[in-house]
Measured scan of single mutants.
Amino acid sequence: GSSGLPPGWQSYLSPQGRRYYVNTTTNETTWERPSSS
């Protein structure tokens, strides 16, 4: 899909309704949208 996220990243919603991002390669999580640069 065209999520616009860098490879390996997925976006999720927290129980509070906030969006966060997870790097499935490194298990890093961040509130900031990852850049593909």
Rank of each mutant, 00 (worst) to 15 (best):
S2I: 13
S36K: 10
N27K: 11
R18S: 08
G17I: 00
T24W: 08
R33W: 11
E32S: 07
S36Y: 14
R33Y: 14
L5K: 02
P7R: 07
P15D: 09
S35E: 14
Q16W: 06
E32K: 10
W31H: 07
P6V: 04
S3L: 15
S36E: 14
S36P: 10
S11Y: 05
R33S: 10
P7G: 05
V22T: 06
S11L: 06
S3I: 13
S11D: 07
R19P: 13
P6L: 05
G4L: 10
P15Y: 05
T24S: 09
Y21F: 07
W31K: 04
S11H: 04
P7M: 07
N27A: 08
E28G: 02
R18L: 10
Y20N: 00
E28F: 05
G1K: 09
R18W: 05
S2H: 12
T30A: 07
T29V: 15
P6S: 03
P7A: 10
Q16S: 15
Y21A: 00
N23H: 06
R18F: 08
R19T: 12
G1T: 12
Y21L: 00
Y20G: 04
T24A: 09
T25F: 15
W9L: 01
L5A: 04
Y20P: 00
E32D: 10
S37E: 14
S35K: 10
G17Y: 02
S14N: 12
L5D: 08
N27R: 09
Y20M: 06
R18T: 12
V22Y: 11
E28A: 05
T30H: 06
Y20L: 06
P34M: 02
P34L: 02
S3Q: 14
R33A: 11
L5G: 02
Y20W: 06
S37Y: 08
Q10L: 15
G4E: 12
V22Q: 05
T29R: 14
N27F: 10
T30I: 09
P34A: 01
S35G: 14
G4Y: 09
Q16L: 10
S36A: 14
S35R: 07
P15T: 08
W31N: 06
S35T: 15
T25Y: 14
L13W: 09
R33V: 11
G8N: 07
S36T: 12
P34H: 02
P15M: 06
S35W: 08
G17L: 04
Y20V: 08
W9A: 00
Y12K: 12
L5P: 04
L5T: 04
R18Q: 13
T29G: 06
P15F: 04
W9D: 01
V22G: 01
R18A: 08
R19Q: 09
S2R: 10
P7I: 07
T26F: 02
T30D: 03
Y20E: 01
Y12A: 10
T26S: 06
P6D: 04
Q10R: 14
L5V: 04
P34I: 02
G17M: 03
R19V: 15
Q16F: 06
G4C: 15
G1C: 15
Y12F: 15
T26H: 01
S3M: 14
W31F: 13
S37D: 14
Y20H: 02
E28V: 06
S36R: 09
T30Y: 08
S35I: 13
E32F: 11
Q10D: 11
V22F: 09
T26V: 02
P34T: 01
N27I: 02
T29W: 15
R18I: 15
G1M: 11
S11N: 02
P6I: 04
T24H: 09
P34Y: 01
V22E: 03
S35M: 13
S11W: 07
S2T: 12
P6N: 02
Q10T: 14
S35Q: 12
T26G: 01
Y12H: 12
T26A: 02
Q16I: 08
P7T: 07
R19A: 08
T29L: 14
P6Y: 04
S2K: 11
Y21S: 00
G8W: 06
R33N: 13
T25K: 11
T26Y: 02
R19I: 15
G8Y: 06
T30Q: 13
S37R: 08
P15S: 09
N27W: 10
L13F: 07
S35N: 13
W9P: 00
G8M: 05
E28L: 05
V22P: 01
T26E: 02
Q10I: 15
G17E: 02
W9I: 01
S3T: 12
Y12Q: 08
Y12I: 09
S37K: 11
V22M: 07
L13P: 04
T30E: 03
S11I: 09
W31G: 02
G4P: 13
G1N: 13
T29S: 10
Y20A: 02
P6E: 04
Q16E: 15
Q10M: 14
Q16Y: 06
G17H: 02
L5M: 05
S14F: 00
Q16A: 12
T26L: 05
G8D: 07
Y21D: 00
T25P: 01
Y21V: 00
S36G: 14
T25Q: 13
S14R: 00
G17K: 03
S36L: 14
L13D: 07
P6W: 04
L13Q: 06
P34R: 00
S14P: 01
T30N: 04
S36Q: 10
S37M: 12
T24K: 09
G1D: 14
L5Y: 03
S37F: 10
Y12S: 05
E28C: 10
T25N: 10
P6G: 04
E28T: 05
Y12W: 06
S35H: 11
W9K: 00
G8S: 04
W9S: 00
P6H: 03
Q10E: 15
T26D: 03
Q16D: 15
G1Y: 05
T24R: 05
G8P: 10
S36M: 14
S37L: 12
E32W: 09
G8H: 07
P15W: 04
T24G: 06
R19W: 15
S37N: 12
G17T: 01
P15V: 07
T29A: 11
L13S: 04
Y12T: 05
S3Y: 13
S36W: 15
G4W: 11
G1E: 15
T29F: 15
T24I: 12
Y20T: 02
S14I: 01
T26I: 03
E28R: 03
G8F: 07
N27E: 06
G17P: 00
P7H: 09
R18H: 10
V22D: 01
Q16R: 08
S11F: 05
E32L: 08
W31I: 06
N23G: 00
T26N: 05
S14K: 01
L13H: 05
N27L: 12
R18N: 11
T26W: 02
S35F: 10
P7V: 08
R18P: 03
S2F: 08
G1V: 13
G8R: 03
R19L: 14
E28Y: 05
N23R: 01
Y21T: 00
P34W: 01
S35V: 14
P6T: 03
V22L: 08
E32T: 08
N23Q: 03
T25L: 15
N23I: 00
S3G: 13
V22S: 03
L13Y: 08
R33E: 08
T29Y: 13
P7Y: 07
P34V: 02
Q16H: 10
V22H: 09
G1H: 13
S2P: 12
T29N: 06
S2D: 14
P15K: 09
T24N: 08
G4Q: 12
S11P: 03
S14G: 09
P34N: 01
Q16M: 09
R19S: 05
S2W: 04
Q16G: 12
G17N: 05
G4S: 10
